[in-house]
Computed example of a mutant assay.
Amino acid sequence: MAYVVTDACVDILDQSCVEECPVDCIYQGDRMMYIHPDECIDCGKCMPACPSDAIYWEHKMPDEVQPFATAAIEFFNEHDDAVGGAGRCGPIGVDHPLVAERHADEA
């Protein structure tokens, strides 16, 4: 894993990050985007493109958003058909429980 989308993306889904990703590794859940930990090449182009400052490099994540790194891994373990590029896969339409259980006013 290299970069991680965090709670600032919940209910935003801006997708500016998707446009910058050279390997198409940013997938759409229901309420937020997810970076595939095995497909990300650690280029960092997504981070400055995010208008919500929701993306962090895994090694410099604040403690309070660290659970989103684990959530991304678990999300793709659960959705093992989400491989080979987000454009090919299309929106997944569900979220990790960490996101799915959040109320809209918490985002």
Results as ranks from 00 to 15, higher is better:
His36Glu: 09
Asp63Met: 12
Asp81His: 11
Tyr27Ala: 07
Ala69Trp: 01
Pro51Asp: 07
Cys46Gly: 02
Cys46Tyr: 00
Cys21Ile: 13
Phe68Ala: 06
Glu19Leu: 14
Ala82Gly: 06
Gln15His: 14
Glu20Tyr: 07
Gln15Trp: 11
Tyr56Arg: 03
Ile41Leu: 08
Pro51Ser: 06
Asp30Glu: 15
Ala82Asn: 02
Arg102Cys: 08
Met33Gly: 12
Val5Pro: 10
Met61Asn: 06
Asp80Arg: 01
Ile26Met: 03
Asp53Gln: 13
Glu78Arg: 07
Val5Glu: 01
Asp24Gln: 10
Asp63Ile: 11
Gln28Leu: 14
Asp105Trp: 08
Arg88Glu: 15
His36Ser: 12
His59Gln: 14
Cys43Tyr: 02
Phe75Thr: 02
Asp81Phe: 15
Lys60Tyr: 13
His96Met: 03
Ile26Ala: 00
Ile73Trp: 01
Ala100Arg: 13
Ile35Trp: 00
Ala8Gln: 12
Ile12Ser: 11
Glu101Cys: 06
Asp30Asn: 12
Asp53Asn: 15
Thr6Val: 05
Asp24Ala: 13
Pro97Glu: 08
Ile12Tyr: 08
His103Pro: 00
Cys21Thr: 11
Asp7Val: 11
Lys60Gln: 15
Asp95Gly: 10
Val23Trp: 07
His36Pro: 05
Trp57Lys: 12
Thr70Gly: 10
Ala2His: 10
Val23Leu: 09
Ile12His: 09
Gly29Ile: 00
Asp14Thr: 11
Tyr34Thr: 09
